[in-house]
């Protein structure tokens, strides 16, 4: 997609009918995200238990981190034991794993993917690159700290972290969810302007709506 694709345009249908398409309103919902507060404490505690025991992962594989996620599906590590499953679509997933460095170009895609996920959603930063830039600390086109751009719940340190470290990360995330502390989606909604400012500072050619559901 490029910036021109978002302008209004005239389309001719196969039947020869002319109509106008306004991509920003027709393809996207531009409403700002809103904080959704839990209704009832007891029900929320039960829901949080279910959320923590059923983590559906959307793996955003950048660089070397993606390689560390594959062994988790194999008999040696077998993350399925802990209720961790992989989903191929952001709509169904509730845990986004950003596995490694993000160039500003991939950051755009990560933001779009994150915003398509539904509240509640959790983010796990994998490897030093997401914490402080890692070996790309002085690179001109990678971001250094992921939590300037997205609310990160858990970081797994290492370059690269072993699959065992990832499993420990899942367990840590489960504790946070059960304690009701993993409210990244609401935090993103509350500090929306701050996150957008940071995102637009690094992404110079911003060619998408401010928020895409």
């Amino acid at each position: 997609m490029s910036l021109e694709d978002l302008n209004k345009k005239q389309i001719v249908s196969p039947d020869g009918e002319h109509f106008e398409v306004d991509p920003m309103n027709d393809y996207f919902c531009q409403d700002r995200p809103e904080e959704v507060k839990p209704v009832n404490k007891i029900v929320e505690r039960f829901y949080n238990w279910a959320r923590s025991e059923s983590l559906w992962i959307l793996g955003f594989g950048t660089g070397c981190g993606a390689i560390e996620m594959r062994p988790l599906m194999t008999p040696r590590f077998d993350a399925y034991r802990f209720g961790v499953q992989w989903r191929p679509t952001p709509r169904q997933a509730n845990l986004l794993i950003v596995s490694g460095y993000l160039s500003t170009k991939t950051l755009k895609r990560v933001i779009r993917v994150y915003e398509q996920m539904q509240n509640p959603k959790f983010v796990m930063g994998l490897g030093s690159c997401t914490i402080n830039g890692g070996m790309y600390f002085d690179s001109y086109n990678t971001i250094k700290r992921l939590d300037y751009y997205l609310p990160v719940d858990v970081y797994v340190a290492g370059c690269m972290p072993r699959p065992e470290a990832l499993l420990a990360g899942f367990e840590e995330l489960k504790k946070l969810i059960k304690a009701g502390k993993a409210e990244g989606a609401n935090e993103y909604a509350n500090k929306f302007d701050w996150y957008k400012k940071n995102q637009k500072e690094v992404i110079r050619d911003w060619d998408m709506p401010d928020y895409n559901w």
Partner: peptide
């Protein structure tokens, strides 16, 4: 899972998944 020599998910995982999907706060 056992055929793939894994332990696999608990046999009651489907119920948890169902509750989790119902517990999403927003939908489109």
């Amino acid at each position: 899972a056992r055929v793939g020599r894994r332990h696999g998910i608990p046999f009651y995982q489907m119920y948890i998944d169902l509750i989790k999907t119902l517990a999403l706060r927003t939908n489109i």
